[in-house]
Computed example of a mutant assay.
Amino acid sequence: MTSALAHIQTLPSWLVGRVAARGRALVAEALAAEGLKLAHHAVLAATDEYGPVAQAELGRRLGIDPKDLVGLLNHLEGAGLLLRTPDPADRRKNAVTLTPAGEAALTRCAALAETANAAFLSPLTPAEREQLTALLTRIHETAAGSRPRS
């Protein structure tokens, strides 16, 4: 008979959580070389994709509490990686844009994250990596309420 703990440790939800924690830790270690955290990387990437973007909209898109976002933006602006300027559409709001240094940091962070993920997935063959990513994407999309890919 399997113990209750052994049973829990074989549940896919438990395994995914443990594996995700390890993956996040590897990427976090890699980004630390840039003096950045995972959330900083996400803010840079979202600013690159949506910018110039209103600060409040950036927080909504990333699901980051406005108070937490201010701290992240202060750090990134202090490091010269982004700018907050009055939004031309509504001067009561701040528009967030990447600086050239921010674009360069985002490129370096993306490379660091790719390297960390390659190490993370190193026990798998390339085909297994693709399959794992496809399966996790399907679960994520279904859990998020979007239509699964076929």
Rank of each mutant, 00 (worst) to 15 (best):
R22V: 07
L121Y: 14
P52R: 09
P12L: 05
R149V: 10
M1Y: 09
H41G: 01
T2L: 13
A33K: 12
H75D: 12
V16W: 06
E77Y: 02
G35E: 09
A79V: 04
T99K: 05
L81I: 05
R22K: 09
N94L: 15
R108E: 09
E114L: 09
A45C: 00
E128C: 04
K37L: 13
L26S: 03
A116R: 08
E57P: 01
G59F: 08
L36G: 00
L26K: 12
Q9G: 00
V96D: 02
L132M: 13
L44R: 10
R91L: 14
A111M: 09
D87Y: 04
E57W: 02
E128V: 03
P126G: 01
L15Q: 15
L132C: 02
A134M: 05
G35T: 10
L31N: 01
E130G: 13
F120T: 13
H140Q: 11
H41V: 01
A118T: 14
R138E: 12
A39Y: 04
R60Q: 12
P126M: 06
T85W: 03
H140V: 09
P66N: 01
D68F: 06
K93P: 01
E114H: 09
D87S: 05
G102H: 03
E29P: 00
L44K: 07
A79M: 11
T115G: 14
A101C: 00
V96F: 02
T97F: 04
A95Q: 12
S13R: 14
L11V: 07
G80N: 04
G63C: 05
G17Y: 07
L132P: 04
R84E: 10
T85F: 05
R22T: 08
A25L: 14
R108T: 10
A30I: 07
L5W: 00
L121R: 10
G35H: 02
A95W: 12
L69P: 07
A127T: 11
G145Q: 04
N74S: 12
E77W: 05
R129N: 03
A119W: 03
E130I: 14
N117A: 05
A119Q: 11
A33N: 02
E128T: 06
E49T: 12
A30D: 01
G80I: 07
M1D: 11
R138W: 07
N117G: 08
A95F: 07
L81D: 05
A104F: 05
E77G: 01
A113S: 13
E130L: 14
S146H: 14
E103R: 15
A45Y: 04
K93E: 13
P86L: 10
I139L: 15
T85D: 12
A46K: 11
K93N: 11
Q55P: 04
D68R: 15
G17H: 05
I64K: 00
A54Y: 05
A4G: 01
R129I: 13
G71M: 06
D65I: 03
L36E: 02
R18G: 01
A144L: 10
